[in-house]
Design a protein around this nucleic acid. Structure first.
Lengths: 188, 188
DNA sequence: TCCTGTATAGACCGATCTATATAAATTCGA
DNA sequence: TCGAATTTATATAGATCGGTCTATACAGGA
């Protein structure tokens, strides 16, 4: 059975928003790319803003879920590096065009408080997962460790687009190890 | 003597583009904010794209110049940390809303090859300056060191917007030191 | 004095934008 | 097989977009 029109619209819109930006992607582009008529879109989403919110929310749930699965199945003491690895795999598979949440923050900071808040919330979700993984590895006492790891992962969003996936992810892996090793050396 | 109309348009457009995004900022908004009439803008810039290019180019030249000055006046062996410090000062002074080059890349990747190339070029300018500073500090032999430092500085673009300037820049400073110390320990 | 360059003022163009209205056609479960 | 929900098709509203046009005013230099 084919996916529902609603789901098809969500994935089509996500791809177009991601590649072309939000303001630059018109409703007509989305519906024609999805092979659907305009009223079908407005039957499922009350406005373009509602569509964007649904796209971002669904994507963030998939992202967070993949992180949680990686952490849950990580060997003891390796939750943090497993999370970083899952982050890298996400970049490789779905985010070589730059982080869609960052794009949303940039386009809607002064234009839609709702969208902006959702994108910021997604970033906080990631930071919170890093903090949980650090605690799980027994490194909760290291001040600012999670934020430093967060900085590295955010930096990789840009380097992937600029230097290519292979180089960027290799660099990122080395830095994660470096930061973790330093934290374990300073602490017990 | 007041600044020329052209310069005034450039700074006004830069602020609006930075805060509201490129597509979301119309020509009318720019000219009314600049207290200038429509034809004055088109007298100086042939199109909106030309205006965006001029804005980004001027901004990048100011940015690179501030980095070069910091490196040139740094004590021997501290060019890299001086460059990172100048980068942090730039974020604090001019870029708390997120990196305008990243926004341009996101909005014009599939929409204007010229703008996208200029923004990518700006990022490469930064990476190149990092490589030069690393070499000046006698660390040119460390493979990937410049790229790792670049990743940290790119990450700070995001953390500044999410965690605030004070926290983000303190974290960044610690990470730059960490990466440099590790490189000096492994190297000579 | 004349000429050139720049700014102002405002109307105007076609195109595109988001969103709605309405009626016919289709789908699909009970 | 019937009826409700969904989708299609089309037309339209009203705003805004980037960009052009004409005409006027005024400055400084030749």
């Amino acid at each position: 059975m084919p996916v529902s029109k609603r789901d098809h619209l969500l994935t089509t819109a996500e791809q177009l928003f991601h590649e072309q930006g939000f303001h630059a992607t018109g409703i007509d582009r989305i519906v024609s790319a999805a092979g659907v008529v305009r009223m079908t879109l407005y039957n499922h989403f009350s406005s373009k803003e509602a569509l964007i919110l649904a796209v971002l929310d669904a994507r963030n749930q998939r992202f967070i879920k993949s992180l949680d699965i990686a952490v849950a199945s990580a060997p003891e003491g390796h939750a943090t590096s497993a999370l970083a690895e899952a982050h890298g795999q996400w970049l490789n598979a779905y985010s070589q065009h730059g982080c869609i949440m960052l794009k949303a923050m940039g386009e809607f900071a002064e234009h839609s408080a709702t969208i902006h808040a959702l994108a910021v919330g997604a970033k906080n979700d990631l930071l919170q997962r890093i903090e949980a993984a650090v605690a799980r590895d027994g490194l909760a006492h290291c001040p600012g460790l999670a934020r430093r790891l967060f900085t590295v992962l955010e930096g990789s969003n840009t380097t992937v687009a600029l230097l290519g996936v292979a180089t960027a992810l290799a660099d990122t892996r080395e830095m994660i190890e470096l930061v973790l090793d330093a934290a374990m050396r300073d602490g017990p």
